[in-house]
Design a protein around this nucleic acid. Structure first.
Lengths: 343, 343
DNA sequence: TGAAATTCTTTACGCGCGTAAAAATACTGC
DNA sequence: GCAGTATTTTTACGCGCGTAAAGAATTTCA
């Protein structure tokens, strides 16, 4: 690795003894050149440390190798984790992922799409904010940029959706709670940020019907993405008013449950499976922190890896197919029950 | 907003009735053209929706408007939060931030620096992994790219460092614990990932000397960035062996404390200020989840906003000064004690 | 109103690379 | 050693924009 700063491909080509167009061909696909030339170039690469100018490349290719990853709220470790999986899958496929977070703000989500358009990405993997998203902005974006939605579905938008089967989450937990204790009530936000919440409520109601118990839905106030605080405040209020219809509570998601558990703790109410416990709490998502709550949280887990891998695969099929699929597909992965101590 | 896709600046210039070089000038600084021409261009902008090709721009400018933000571990909401602050500050200053996470992996950190070099950013804000970082790689990087380190300092690298005054964190907590209860022992990882941990230990030892108590440092096993799990395992082991030298525990950071609290809960050991509690636990960082632990965590808070704003300011001063400062500066912000229920 | 100072237009080149076409060269199997 | 094929070289253009220089137009202000 000599300390010779190389200006451009022309210069590098000369130093490696290969013509520039061939070197260009090499960088687009090392296997597209003869073995002997590839080796010459690779030898020069060892020696001189050169990388093609990414801006010149992207300007001239019709399609960049960029992939946008958009999540609604990166301060939620769930999204940080899934973004990590997706990032790795993109890199492995030879693409350059760039991560964006809307930070819970619809205006920022629109701005991200604007910036993304300028990046001319080969494709975008997007978990939209959901209820707060500007649907028409997303629709317009998806018409221009090959997009696969994940985690949170918006009917008809994007070329595909990959996420978790919300119904299966609720089926698992309700079934388990009913079997091991008694039918749960359902604890959720009155105006959930995310459409998954609605599917979960619907699944809860369906399970009540199927198992023959009277459903009890508790809808707490609060807006935004500070779910823990919302769950906590809602929990404190319920406990204060003694308004819990059942000692078994199923939270719509783990972050609400984390807040609820902290409220219970503060009020001195024990949660868990033991006889001396007044409440049982279960939830959905298998949030990275759910194993460290007090008590540890019984929950239904996403298949992070399957969702990420499938979303990325779908995107690359889409990209290689020219950006359009014959038909919008929806892929859902089932939940896995994680039994811990809270229920 | 007519549906006329505009190909390039030439075309847009013609449609707006202004010459291309002037339009170019406008996009570089709207105030550099006469008011009347600016208004013409802005009117055309309303009508035709055009944005200069970012790749062509970056290819031709010596300096891009890109800013890299590198954090060691994005699944830690602390870094997600600070990244959010920094992002906003960059956007406000007219730059284009891009977020990268090393995900706790030194190899990835190096790869990020490689990619960052290709992006030719105006500057980089970097919170290095710390102990695991390849120091020489970072040093080489900092020589080529104007870099401001934040959160985690590496002696002499980057043009400036902005972070928190670790000593003040420990001073605050030790002082408080000693005053309200008794001198704490110090709970940390034997091989901490981050150099801040060493500063905190040193400050603890100094405080012990100053206040005249015998320091007790507990160093638990475990490597990597899964601090909660490490804290939990360490806590379980300590409790099992009854090896706690003091009923007052000061954790090096909140994530360890979260793990420790979960261990205590699991073992039925009450933590808090009330007389019936066997332990008190305090910590440092004011992690976003620390208010939802059971009990809520008494901790010392970073001044997120000050750290982010100052880091960004430093970077822009650096960039505008041509990428070099006369002298490497270190700016530290004091901690603020957050009293909650755990101690 | 006129001259000086601004600002704009015109023209032209360069950035680093993708890519096409034709010619030259290197391999392959027989 | 040959024809036939695969690969490389040579040459050349284009991508969209930054930017420099010279002259034309506009504004400013005495």
């Amino acid at each position: 690795m000599t300390e010779t700063p190389i200006r451009n491909m022309e210069e590098f080509a000369r130093l490696s003894g290969i013509s520039r167009p061939t070197v260009s061909k090499f960088f687009n696909d090392p296997d597209s050149v003869r073995r002997s030339t590839r080796e010459k170039i690779e030898a020069a690469l060892e020696k001189y440390d050169y990388r093609p100018n990414i801006y010149a490349i992207n300007q001239n290719r019709k399609l960049t190798k960029n992939v946008g990853i958009v999540v609604p709220y990166l301060a939620d470790p769930f999204f940080a984790e899934i973004a990590r999986y997706i990032e790795q899958a993109c890199i492995a496929a030879g693409y350059r992922p760039t991560l964006f977070s809307a930070h819970g703000d619809p205006a920022l989500e629109i701005e991200i799409m604007d910036n993304l358009r300028a990046l001319k990405p080969a494709g975008v993997l997007m978990a939209p904010l959901g209820r707060a998203s500007d649907k028409s902005a997303i629709e317009a974006f998806c018409r221009n940029v090959p997009t696969v939605l994940f985690d949170s579905n918006i009917e008809g938008m994007g070329e595909a959706f990959v996420g978790s089967d919300n119904a299966s989450f609720v089926t698992e937990t309700v079934e388990y709670l009913t079997r091991s204790a008694e039918p749960p009530c359902f604890f959720e936000m009155k105006h959930p940020a995310n459409p998954n919440a609605n599917k979960r409520r619907a699944a809860y109601l369906a399970m009540a019907e199927k198992l023959g118990f009277a459903p009890q839905v508790i809808q707490i106030e609060g807006t935004g993405w500070g779910f823990e605080e919302i769950g906590r405040q809602g929990g404190l209020k319920l406990l204060e008013e003694n308004a819990l219809p059942s000692p078994v509570i199923l939270c719509s998601n783990d972050r609400l449950a984390i807040g609820l558990l902290s409220a219970c703790y503060e009020r001195g109410i024990r949660v868990g499976r033991e006889p001396e416990c007044a409440l049982r709490v279960a939830s959905h998502d298998d949030h990275p922190f759910s194993r460290f709550t007090c008590p540890s949280l019984t929950t239904a887990a996403h298949d992070y890896a399957a969702v990420s891998d499938t979303a990325v695969e779908s995107l690359f099929r889409l990209v290689e197919g020219g950006g359009k699929l014959k038909e919008r597909s929806e892929t859902l992965f089932r939940a896995r029950l994680i039994m811990r101590n809270s229920a």
